[in-house]
Amino acid sequence: MARNVSVQTKTGFTILAWAVALLLFSPILWTIVTAFKTEAEAIAAPPTFLPLTFTLDNFFDVQDRSDYIKHAWNSILVSVGSTLLGLVIAIPAAWSMAFAPTKRTKDILMWMLSTKMMPAVGVLIPIYLIFRDLRLLDTVHGLTIIMTLINLPIIIWMLYTYFKEIPVDILEAARMDGAELWNEIVHVLVPMAIPGIASTLLLNVILAWNEAFWTITLTSGRAGTLTAFISSFSSPQGLFLAKLSAASLLAIAPILLLGWFSQKQLVRGLTFGAVK
């Protein structure tokens, strides 16, 4: 895609593009630098850019005040747990739809997509009451179940689009070679689809990590994830800007890194394969 353009044009576009990109990135950049400032410096006017006194105290304070590690652990349990559980349910289903399609396969796929479109508030009250009665409120496994159900359609869809790219010949060859279904899936399909499965895993961990409706409404203290952790900073308490930044940075850093690796898959996953 090397188009020939003059150096002036390229320089012009480069400056413009960087200016816009930095503007968009500035809230994150602000969070990063402020996290290492003292509280006094964080609200100083005029503001400083890089911290004058570099400090890590904010991170320790955040841990002491709100127990970051507990919330992060809950986030990991819920996002990874729900994605793995989702994959276990989704891999066989996606195999069926990709390799043994029937006239109804398309309808089933569309129906699964439609469940994703149901607004959470439409079912919030019954889920809240069911969870209350089953004592699932504020539990990690309750949240994991909800997150699995929310992301299951996306997991199935993503896997389906990846499986569709695997030639059916190879699965048939495995059948001819004496492989029963279990072996066909474990020894042939899954290893061949590893890149697709990994992308699916990654994207769904990100989506579950950032999910901020159910995690806030169904948890209070014990099973709170990072979204709930950060929401506890919504009412300012004195000097807190640097601590807020430190908490924010801690909450977003892991997923920001994962996200950078998965931007290509993101498009495919979030458009249900409609844009590749």
Binding site: T14, A17, T31, G259
Partner: peptide, 30 residues
């Protein structure tokens, strides 16, 4: 065709990976 396309992409895509409450609080307070 611009210099640093890869980094630009990362900068531009980043806000999407920020969880909603963090995004809201950064904007609100910062």
């Amino acid at each position: 065709p611009v210099w640093g396309q890869g980094i630009l992409r990362i900068l531009v895509i980043s806000p999407f990976f920020v969880m909603p409450p963090v995004a809201a609080l950064i904007w609100k307070n910062g």
